[in-house]
């Protein structure tokens, strides 16, 4: 394992341009996120009070789905085009490489959703006071989702139609982040939700990269 950051930043840059070129540029996840949120008023009726109450929760659902849609191809493509073989032999930590790729995908497909939140929240009548805590929650929860989703994607890399398998593996891991994330939106920044959401994000940051690395090594065999 070399100490040089060049391999990590190269992996990051390659993943950024791959995510961008792969059609999952900014607009696609944004459209997905907005589209899902737009369906809510149509499916539940226009009871403003109800929408304001469930709005933040439904956005969590949209975020979880968006993360899985974009992660399906992250490692599968590397396995199929042979780039994974090269990474494993580059002498650098495959765990860190996988983590930096995952982070790149979060930047392209996860972060825009956070930025779009006020607009969608406004549409659903979510009170403005809840908006900032909710955005912070989506940002931290999004990183957590992408990390666990990355583990699932690495495990499912050699499976032909991996989307459903990724969902089955990853969704249980999303639960803690959602529970605490919803509390952050409800209680604001001073509640107990925020430290617990932070803790689940840090746990994912610590555990997910080695798990991705191990899964990818296995996939390359």
């Amino acid at each position: 394992m070399k100490a040089s950051p060049a391999p990590l930043s190269s992996a990051f840059r390659q993943a950024l341009s791959e995510a961008w070129a792969g059609g999952s540029g900014l607009l696609l996840p944004l459209g997905f996120f907005a589209g899902t949120a737009m369906l809510i008023p149509f499916s539940l009726g226009s009871d403003a009070e109800l929408l304001a109450r469930i709005g933040p929760g439904v956005l969590w659902l949209a975020l979880a789905l968006a993360s899985m849609v974009t992660l399906e191809r992250v490692f599968q493509a590397d396995l199929q085009d042979g780039a994974l073989d090269l990474w494993i032999q580059s002498g650098d930590s495959i765990s860190l490489i996988a983590a930096s790729k995952t982070f790149a995908h979060w930047l392209i497909s996860g972060l825009p959703l956070v930025i779009l939140t006020p607009a969608i929240g406004y549409m659903l009548g979510v009170p403005m006071s809840e908006m900032l805590p909710a955005m912070l929650g989506y940002a931290m929860g999004g990183i957590t989702f992408f990390l666990w989703g990355g583990v699932a994607a690495a495990l499912a890399a050699s499976v032909a139609r991996a989307g459903l398998l990724i969902a089955v593996i990853a969704l249980p891991f999303y639960v803690p982040a959602i529970i605490f994330g919803v509390r952050v939106a409800e209680e604001g920044l001073n509640g107990v939700g925020l430290p617990f959401l932070g803790a689940s994000m840090l746990f994912a940051l610590g555990v997910a990269p080695p798990a991705m690395g191990a899964a990818l090594r296995l996939a390359a065999e």
Binding site: A21, D81, G82, A83, D85
Partner: peptide
């Protein structure tokens, strides 16, 4: 060593 497998390791966008 250098490795060249039967796949080229190229990304479609590169």
């Amino acid at each position: 060593h250098h490795w060249l497998g039967h796949t080229n390791g190229l990304k479609a966008h590169e």
